[in-house]
Design a protein around this nucleic acid. Structure first.
Length: 396
RNA sequence: GGGCAGGUACCCAAGUGGACAACGGGGGCAGACUGUAAAUCUGCUGGCGCAAGCCUUCGGAGGUUCGAAUCCUUCCCUGCCCA
């Protein structure tokens, strides 16, 4: 495909490309470009936030380019200073191997394995001598590194910044040198690191990588970046039910952003949703419903997506019971409600169970239980509900 | 090495001898409402107990006191200034 056309495709949904001219120049050579993305081996679960970047990679692959995934098994020991990540626990070789096996299983739901390369940065970073290290460090100033947003913020607020952390951008940059990256992708929060890669390559007389930043996807709380450590993520291998529900819980304002960044829906269709929502013609609930169906279809199947949708309506709109009601055998003829909640594990403590009973969150066969001394008779199976999402069929 | 300021629950943060299981915010959970597990409003958010109350918790360890998150000693950790 001609370079200009490729460029247009690649540019969609990006925040910034530095520089566009250089990218076009690279594309015009009509040879496969090496597109780098760093991945963190300590978080083997791929979620929609990461999928934004992986999907962009996929796009490159479809245009004939190569995805080069740099597994940060070395830099993982440091932990990217962005976010308030504490010093990460050192991973053993086995853990990394295990995590990566899990990672690969998921990643090829998005990427094309034939055009994907994996390399572990311990291979070259671990081989650096202290002399090499000093040589690299001597080309970068503290002031320049401290310009980085999160460093300067931490410094200003008196939050510690450790020496190994300020080395992080240099190591990541060196990865680009080692794999001879043409382009590096990252979230907008990665801009600084990506730029350091460019500089380092130039220092070493290499053609600098082009950097491309992509939007950060907010998690289910609608505020913070989707991340495993915030617990606001939607994993691409989650069960259809879970996935559907989590998507329905994102704030309405994020619906369009999710469509754009995480789905394969055509732009004109998304435009339709956008204007429909703006003008109040479409109910946000219905559009979000479409979003949930789309994502479940992408990561499971069309059929499962339909089923999840029906199930969701059944439980939350019609307030009926789920189809796959789990059973719990208690081995007793009757039991106090609090004990029951504890035995089934639906409540973490007796105090919590009592609280929830008083709040009216517990019901048996559709009848709210408000008395903490209520005794449940089990001469026939009953359905215990705790809150909106927890159901169990109790049998004696 | 010296001086100063700090370390509080999942996170941020108030509290500086009793009224503190500890203000407030975030997050979480629940209820109401809603064609949404959205938004909004309300409640709850250490454990055991029907309750009175008891137990555990304020960086660690000791101590003073009838009584400590709050005072003292010591240790560990962080920031700032000086060297």
């Amino acid at each position: 495909m001609e370079a200009e056309r490729q460029f247009e495709i690649i540019k969609t949904n990006t925040v910034e490309i530095i520089s566009e001219e250089e990218l076009l120049k690279k594309l015009k050579r009509q040879r496969p470009l090496r597109v780098k993305l760093g991945i963190d081996p300590s978080a083997p679960e791929i979620h929609l936030g990461i999928s934004v970047q992986l999907r962009k990679l996929r796009q490159f692959q479809e245009l004939g380019h190569i995805a080069v995934l740099v597994v940060g098994d070395f830099t993982g020991m440091i932990g990217d200073p962005s976010g308030q990540s504490k010093t990460r626990p050192k991973l053993t070789r086995e853990q990394i191997k295990k995590n990566m096996a899990k990672y690969k299983e998921q990643i090829f739901k998005i990427l094309d394995p034939k055009r994907t390369e994996f390399s572990y940065n311990s291979k070259w970073l671990g081989a650096l001598t202290i002399y090499d290290f000093i040589d690299i460090a001597s080309k970068h100033t503290v002031a320049r590194i401290l310009e980085r947003d999160d460093f300067s913020i931490r410094l200003k607020e008196g939050i510690p910044v450790y020496m190994h952390e300020i080395m992080y951008p240099l190591f990541q940059a060196y990865d680009s040198v080692a794999i001879k990256a043409d382009i590096e992708l990252g979230g907008t929060d990665q801009k600084f690191n990506l730029l350091v890669g460019r500089e380092m390559m130039r220092e070493l007389q290499m053609e600098p990588q082009v950097i491309m930043t992509l939007p950060i996807l907010e998690g289910t709380d609608g505020v913070r970046k989707m991340s495993k450590s915030f617990g606001n993520y939607i994993g691409i291998t989650e069960s259809p039910k879970e996935m559907f529900g989590k998507i329905m819980s994102i704030p309405d304002e994020l619906i369009i952003k999710y469509f754009e960044l995480t789905t394969d829906i055509f732009p004109h269709k998304i435009e339709e949703f956008r204007s429909g929502l703006q003008e109040g013609i479409l109910n946000p609930r219905d559009v979000k419903f479409e979003l949930a169906k789309t994502l479940v279809r992408m990561y499971h199947s069309a059929q499962v997506a339909e089923e999840s949708a029906r199930e969701f309506e059944k439980i939350y709109s019609k307030k009926e019971l789920p189809t796959d009601l789990k059973e719990f055998k208690i081995g007793l003829e009757e039991i106090n409600i609090v004990d029951l909640l504890m035995k089934t594990g639906l409540m973490p403590s007796r105090a919590e169970a009592k609280r929830k009973i008083k709040e009216g969150a517990i019901d048996i066969d559709g009848n709210p239980v408000k008395d903490i001394n209520y005794v449940v008779k089990l001469n026939k199976p009953v359905v215990l509900r705790a809150g909106k999402h927890k159901f169990l069929k109790i049998i004696s």
